[in-house]
């Protein structure tokens, strides 16, 4: 039970943490969904060719991070709108993956991992440890160091930073690097727990991660609450599905609806607080 909850919510948490940092730096990384897919696919490729989970996870994180930083850097270099290039990435990545998959593995469908021997338990524990570490370290860095201050300053007032001689664009690209890195980890976890790369394996987790940032009121601790909220919603959905014997197709959209309602409640609370 707890294990399956972890499998469900950790990828969201990892991706949300990355997105949270980009949000702190003033621009939300909208391409999270596509980047998770990218991470998941890279993980599969490296396991297939090198047969090493460790290398696969590292490579997924690093390469996805570079992709994320690359597209953010290009967007800023050419003064594009990061929301729109992010959307373009989301549209582009699944297509490119299928093209590569058809060319290299001769199928656009499920790619089964045949070799791995690590149990799901170790996997979940490993990722749990990893995400806790990254969470604590990154929040510490954000709150207490010069670099963290730079990130927050970029989000609060980039003009002021520019006047002081800082380079807000570079800071933002670096947060995108981190965000891509986290998406890579998130995707790696998905592929490893499913034991395969499945088309659209992220199935909206990236969007939920984005919603989690807002649901948590753009605060670090809020992220944890938001992801817990998703986890509880998932449990309820599974329970409801079991007890009322409803078709599973009805529950595909359940997390979205619950999140949507959660956001509204959040907004209402904020509004009463403000007035």
């Amino acid at each position: 039970m707890i294990q399956s909850l972890m499998i469900y919510s950790l990828p969201i948490f990892l991706a949300a943490l990355g997105g949270y940092l980009t949000d702190k730096a003033g621009i939300l990384n909208i391409a999270i969904e596509g980047l998770i897919l990218c991470g998941a696919f890279i993980t599969f490729i490296f396991i297939y060719f090198l047969d090493s989970i460790f290398i696969a996870v590292i490579m997924a994180a690093v390469l996805t991070g570079l992709l994320s930083a690359g597209f953010a850097g290009l967007t800023m270099r050419f003064k594009g709108n990061i929301f729109i290039t992010g959307l373009a990435m989301n549209l582009l990545i699944p297509g490119v993956i299928t093209l590569i998959s058809k060319r290299v593995f001769l199928t656009g469908g499920v790619l089964q991992i045949t070799s791995t021997i690590v149990t799901t338990e170790t996997l979940v524990l490993g990722f749990l440890f990893l995400s806790c570490m990254i969470y604590l370290i990154s929040i510490y860095l954000l709150k207490n160091t010069q670099a963290g201050l730079l990130v927050r300053a970029t989000g609060l007032n980039r003009r002021a930073l520019e006047v002081r001689g800082g380079n807000p664009s570079r800071v933002q690209v670096l947060t995108f690097l981190f965000s891509g890195f986290m998406c890579g980890l998130s995707g790696a976890m998905l592929t490893l727990t499913v034991h395969a790369y499945v088309p659209n394996i992220s199935s909206g987790k990236g969007w939920l991660a984005l919603a989690a940032i807002y649901l948590g009121n753009q605060k670090a601790t809020g992220l944890i609450y938001a992801v817990l909220f998703f986890a509880i919603a998932e449990v309820l959905a599974n329970l409801a599905q079991g007890t009322f014997d409803l078709p599973s197709s009805l529950f595909v959209g359940f997390p979205y609806l619950v999140t949507f309602i959660g956001l509204i409640i959040r907004g209402m609370i904020d509004r009463t607080r403000r007035s």
């Binding site: 909208i30 929301f83 909206g204 969007w207 984005l210 919603a211 807002y214 078709p247 197709s249 009805l250 529950f251 595909v252 959209g253 359940f254 997390p255 979205y256 609806l257 999140t259 949507f260 956001l263 509204i264 959040r266 907004g267 209402m268 904020d270 509004r271």
Partner: peptide
């Protein structure tokens, strides 16, 4: 409520898509 329409429209859409499928 200052909820970003980018997120809310996507979430609502995700829910409605599966409801419509159903």
């Amino acid at each position: 409520y200052h909820i970003h329409e980018l997120i809310s429209s996507f979430l609502l859409s995700g829910g409605l898509l599966s409801l419509t499928d159903f």
